[in-house]
């Protein structure tokens, strides 16, 4: 493909950036603050800032610009909620299920425990853990997003696992 003008000020390029990064940024903020609307707003604000600064931000730097702006916006908001993730109920389909009612109940209880435990993680652990487990981001990508080392990401994620285990076994 021919190398065309890739200034962020070009609407086409801006759209491309939005489609590529906006969901990751939204989830990144959501895992921190737990408020979907706020996360969506912060994401939009970050892109508006990018647009107004489009002359000063080279295309390759746009990603880290967006993450930095979004993270700052998050730090500036006062009210944060508990991060409560929804989960998909197991679908019975129309297959015969050989799971006993007791088993199903225990599974539901487990999911609720896990939900609480995730909400109780520290913001740093939760964000890294969920970006990895739900968004499928690799440690290296998370390190770039959070502007920390891969080692630090590993530490946060394994720390999250250990905390989750402790909390689930204690409840």
């Amino acid at each position: 493909m021919p190398q065309i003008n890739n200034s962020v000020c070009e609407e086409h390029n801006f759209n491309r950036l939005f489609r590529t990064y906006s969901k990751s940024i939204r989830n990144f903020i959501f895992y921190k603050c737990g408020n979907e609307n706020e996360a969506n707003d912060i994401t939009q604000e970050a892109f508006i800032k990018l647009w107004t600064n489009c002359k000063n931000v080279p295309f390759e730097k746009a990603k880290s610009f967006l993450y930095t702006v979004a993270n700052n916006a998050f730090l500036n908001t006062v009210a944060h909620q508990k991060v409560v993730l929804k989960y998909a109920e197991k679908q019975p389909k129309n297959k015969a299920s050989n799971e006993t009612p007791q088993f199903i109940l225990e599974e539901q209880e487990y999911m609720m425990k896990l939900q609480t435990a995730i909400a109780n993680l520290t913001e740093a652990q939760r964000t890294a853990f969920l970006l990895n487990r739900i968004d499928g981001k690799k440690y290296k990508e998370i390190a770039e997003m959070l502007n920390i080392s891969v080692k630090a990401v590993e530490k946060r994620i394994s720390g999250a696992l250990i905390s989750l285990r402790k909390e689930i076994e204690n409840i």
Binding site: N15, F18, L85, L114, L130, L161
Partner: peptide, 23 residues
């Protein structure tokens, strides 16, 4: 088990087209 069950959680639905249009 923690890993398997965590995979059942989802982030809220997000549609790039809708968000971009609203922006």
């Amino acid at each position: 088990k923690i890993i398997a069950k965590t995979a059942l959680f989802q982030s809220p639905l997000y549609n790039e087209d809708v968000q971009l249009e609203s922006l």
